[in-house]
Computed example of a mutant assay.
Amino acid sequence: MAEHLKRRIGLGLLTAYGVGVMIGAGIYVLVGAVAADAGIWAPLAFLVAGLIAAPTALSYSEFSTRIPEAAGEAAYVGKGLNSQVLAVVIGLAIVAAGTVSAAAVLRGGVGYLTLVVDVPYVAALVAIALLLTGVAVFGVMESLALAAIFTVIELVGLGLVVWAGTAAEPVADWVSQPEIVWSGVGAGAVLAFFAFIGFEDIVNMAEEVSEPERTMPRAILIALVVTTIIYAVVAWVTVRAVPLEALGSSERPLALVWQAGTGGDAKFLSTIAVFAALNGVLAQIVMASRVLFGLGKRNPSLAIFHHANPRTGTPVLATVLVGGMVLIGALVLNVSQLAEMTSSILLSVFVIVNLALIFEKRRNPEAPFRVPMIVPVAGLLLAGAALVFNIQSAL
Rank of each mutant, 00 (worst) to 15 (best):
A223I: 07
Q259R: 13
L254A: 07
A273C: 14
V257T: 05
A255K: 01
A266S: 14
F268V: 00
I229E: 11
T227Q: 04
A232R: 00
G261H: 07
T228Y: 02
L221W: 03
V226P: 02
L247C: 07
A232V: 11
L247R: 00
T215M: 13
G248M: 15
M216Q: 10
W258T: 04
Q259D: 12
G261Y: 04
W258N: 05
T228S: 14
Q259G: 08
T238V: 09
P253W: 13
A266R: 01
L269F: 13
G261F: 03
E251C: 03
P253C: 14
W236E: 15
T228G: 10
L224T: 03
A235N: 11
T227H: 05
V226E: 08
T227L: 12
Q259W: 04
I230V: 15
L254T: 06
T262C: 08
L244K: 02
W258D: 10
L256R: 04
V233N: 07
E251M: 15
V239I: 06
G261D: 12
R218F: 05
A232W: 00
P217D: 14
P243R: 00
E251S: 11
V225N: 01
V233E: 09
S249P: 02
L221F: 03
A235G: 14
I272T: 06
A255G: 15
V242D: 04
W258M: 06
